Amino acid sequence: MEKTPSTSRSSAYLDALTQEIKKKLTRALASPAQRRNLLQDLFADIALEVDERAKDAILSRDEDGISSAEADADGPLCFFDVLADYYVKVSDSGKDILDLMLQLWSQSFASHIFSLLFHKWLFEVQLDNQEILLRYSSALVQGATNVFWIDIQTNTRRFQTLFRYLLEEVALESSRLNRIPIQAQRDLYLLLSRFILFYNSVDKLESFLGHFPELPNAFLVGGPSDFFVIELTDQLQKLKVEPVLLHYLSQMKVLHGMELRMTTSTRLKACLYSFTSPGGPMYPTRAVRHAAWDTLDSLFPVGRYPRHLISLFFRLLYPWYWPSSCWNFVVSCIKTLLYSLVGLIFSRREKPRRC
């Protein structure tokens, strides 16, 4: 099939980008002292969003002026998105990069770069060497974990396309999932469990749990729901960015009605309860405390009032919290009163109009 001018231009641009990546990897290999900085710069380059001028050169558009990559993009279109597609369509184009990556395998940001550039390639090609396949699979999980944490720390979703691919096109598609070793499959599911709420994919949760692979200690821990909740509670304990933590707490209401073992349910309850009190070890803000109470009462309505009474009793044991608690209580009362007055005034104004 003859290539159109736009397709040829796109291939030439992506090939030029590939050559630049190879040059930077070669420089990193030849400069041990600058290796980490060079790999970090390369990672930052491929994670950049594609600007409008580059889009015209990279994306081949159809008659309507819309490219398939743009139509499938979920969020900002980044260089790693188009390069990952390119290395699948033209599999030989990434061979030299992979050879260089293997020589830099133990370096910082190597797994980051691999997961961004070759996450689609790994599930589309046939690799006969099981040792290499296991190495690639482990690097993918490690690199994806690292880049997802970058999104967590910055409260952005730049790598959402990577997450969505691993969830929807791999975890929920047995034909692709079975291409990697069983241990890598388990690690991938545990990874996705930790970030599925962050990337707003709760609508896929039921299907995700239905595809959960069998884990070796399932007899002791429980079923897929138990593993998911355990990973989720561990993730909550590590979160330090308030907007992200609030987002997780609001999304966790989807767990209502989920069947869990007693130990898992107690673990979830204890995790949420730890965010309801000021001070150590969590030092949650007032917004986080209220969100945690809201989620806790939603998931565990039985015993709601005794929990609040016990919490109030322990708050009374710490007099230094009384001024702030009293002040917040007064402010809340004033806000409630003002909202009630405004609502009453507007309701009275609307009555004559209706008559």
Rank of each mutant, 00 (worst) to 15 (best):
V244F: 12
L232D: 01
I230E: 09
L215H: 15
V221P: 02
L245H: 03
V244S: 13
S207L: 09
T233D: 03
K204Y: 14
V244M: 09
V241F: 03
V244G: 10
I196V: 11
Q237M: 10
E206H: 10
L246W: 00
R194Q: 13
P213N: 03
Q235H: 14
D203M: 07
V244D: 14
T233N: 04
P213K: 05
L245F: 04
L205A: 03
E231V: 00
L215A: 11
Y248A: 02
L239G: 03
L245T: 05
V221I: 15
T233H: 06
L232T: 09
Q237N: 10
F195W: 04
L246M: 03
V229K: 06
D234Q: 11
V244H: 09
Q235E: 13
P216I: 10
Q235K: 13
F208A: 01
F198T: 04
H211F: 15
T233A: 05
S201V: 01
A218C: 06
T233P: 12
G222H: 13
H211A: 15
K204H: 14
V202T: 15
F227G: 06
G210R: 07
D226G: 04
D226I: 04
D226L: 05
I196E: 00
Y199Q: 01
F212K: 03
P216S: 08
H247E: 08
I230F: 03
Y248E: 13
K238L: 02
E231I: 00
Y248H: 15
F212P: 04
G223R: 10
V229C: 09
V241W: 04
F208V: 03
P224A: 15
K238C: 00
S225G: 11
Q235V: 07
N200R: 13
I196G: 02
N217E: 14
L209G: 09
E231K: 00
D234H: 13
F228M: 07
L236P: 11
L236Y: 05
V221L: 05
D203P: 02
F227K: 06
S225A: 14
F228P: 10
D203K: 14
K240H: 10
P243L: 08
L236E: 01
R194P: 05
E214I: 07
L232I: 00
L209P: 06
G223L: 12
L232Y: 00
L215Q: 15
